[in-house]
Amino acid sequence: MPNAIPNVSLAQRAWAIRRNALRMGEVQGQGYIGQALGIADVLAVSYFHAMDYRADDPGWEGRDRFCLSIGHYAIALYAALIEAGILPEDEIGTYGMDDSRLPMSGMAAYTPGMEITGGSLGHGLGISVGIALGLKRKRNPAFVYNMLSDGELGEGSTWEAVMSAVQWKLDNLIAIVDFNNQQADGPTTHALAQVPEAPKWEAFGWHAQSVDGNDIDAVKAAFDTARTHAAAQPRVIICNTKMCKGIPFLEDREITHFIRVEPDEWARALAILDESRPQ
């Protein structure tokens, strides 16, 4: 794992990802900051423990592919790509602006390191099936990580992809479900998602794990298990995350899909984060 620099802990990486995301949120005065803060620990493990890539060559053929199905999580992925050195930090101020490489919904044509265009939900896992098939055709040992949301579990196309991945024995495909139990109109479990989620995937033929997505050691162990699992089947890690994790006054706010942050609160959130910087 060439990207694991021993003197920077995963907790520090997650902290930096949260900070980058908050700074982008401040630029626009809005953004899916609740999701970004919630998924930061999982992204830290993805980019600084699990994945192989070259920061100066985002299209390197040997890279692990990270496919972001949830386009509105772009703010979170940009924050990770900046921390990984794939995107320069000085582009933070362009987030969501005209001519920016960082549009508010993630699109492959705009951003180095953004593998697919997400946003129309229920697409990413199917595209990842195709990428995984293509890698196998090329005998390329890279993994495909596909990050999707619990809300996307309501899309029929997600389940087409779930079945297809099993049919093709895609042991190079790792799905990461951000289960924060929040979709646009309310709790995901009040709509179509069922808990526990993992047995459903197991019944379809996947290797499934469910972890506390804000426990870095647990997430790290789950990624290791997913990558080294021997059976010829796709793997899913259901990451139970807390929206707005790390900023207590936002965590306590009535949780909604689109967190409202008052103009003066961005600085307050950044100050709280800075005080809690891991050593």
Partner: peptide, 15 residues
Amino acid sequence: AVLMSAAAGLAREGF
């Protein structure tokens, strides 16, 4: 759906 999406993924990998 997965027919089209998987075709897109294969195209991304050069096919």
